[in-house]
């Protein structure tokens, strides 16, 4: 995460020196976004020692599902070029049933028609989901959308994206009907694929 952040800051400095603009403050923007996400696919790989049966169990599978969750976030960013915007995003998101995180991500937005004109947009972001108790969730998203320019400095975006999250969830033992103790878990990787849709107001 730190290495990714350093590379991004270095890229930002290069872009700033090459970009044209009216001034620094006119290129700073902030916004709010909210929306829903449909988690449609779950890949998991669990490997744990089951005390009840006395041997190791290895499970790996991909399963389809339909789980509706929500998210909202605030972000602040800068137009690093005529068509590029780099933002830092912090919010609150539910990635799966009972798994809520605070995502902290860096997002790159590309507006082929210009940062403040009507037109298609494309974005990609990557970061972590912070939780109080457990390990962090790694997340990444790519997507597209449409920007409606409301004024010189404000706009409304409709966005659609595909989000991937990597988590280390607790493993449920269906026989004992309890969670496997963490000290018995050798591997508990889970990936969640979701379709995100949302609205963004930028000002």
């Amino acid at each position: 995460m730190k290495k990714r952040l350093l590379i991004t800051v270095a890229a930002l400095c290069c872009c700033l020196s090459a970009s044209a603009g009216n001034g620094l403050f006119s290129r700073l923007h902030a916004g709010l976004e909210w929306g829903g996400s449909f988690t449609v696919l779950n890949h998991y790989h669990y490997n744990y020692l089951d005390d009840a049966v006395g041997f190791r169990i290895n499970e790996e599978a991909v399963r389809g599902m339909f789980n509706l969750n929500g998210y909202f976030a605030g972000y602040a960013g800068m137009d690093v070029a005529k068509e590029l915007n780099l933002s830092l995003l912090l919010g609150y998101e539910s990635i799966y049933d009972g798994r809520e995180v605070m995502p902290l991500s860096i997002r790159l937005n590309w507006y082929p028609s210009g940062c403040h004109s009507d037109g298609l947009l494309f974005f990609a972001d990557t970061g972590s989901g912070i939780r109080k108790s457990d390990s962090m969730v790694k997340r990444a998203q790519i997507g597209t959308g449409y920007r409606l320019s409301l004024s010189d400095y404000s706009s409304l975006d409709l966005r659609l994206g595909i989000r991937i999250c990597h988590d280390n969830p607790d493993v449920w033992d269906p026989v004992e009907e309890e969670y496997i103790s963490r000290r018995n878990i050798l591997r508990n990787d889970a990936h969640y694929f979701a379709l995100n849709f949302g609205l963004v107001i930028e000002f």
Binding site: L148, S151, S154, L156
Partner: peptide
């Protein structure tokens, strides 16, 4: 309430 010229209200 923000009312924009292009017909959108937020």
């Amino acid at each position: 309430l923000a009312s924009f010229d292009r017909g959108i209200e937020i």
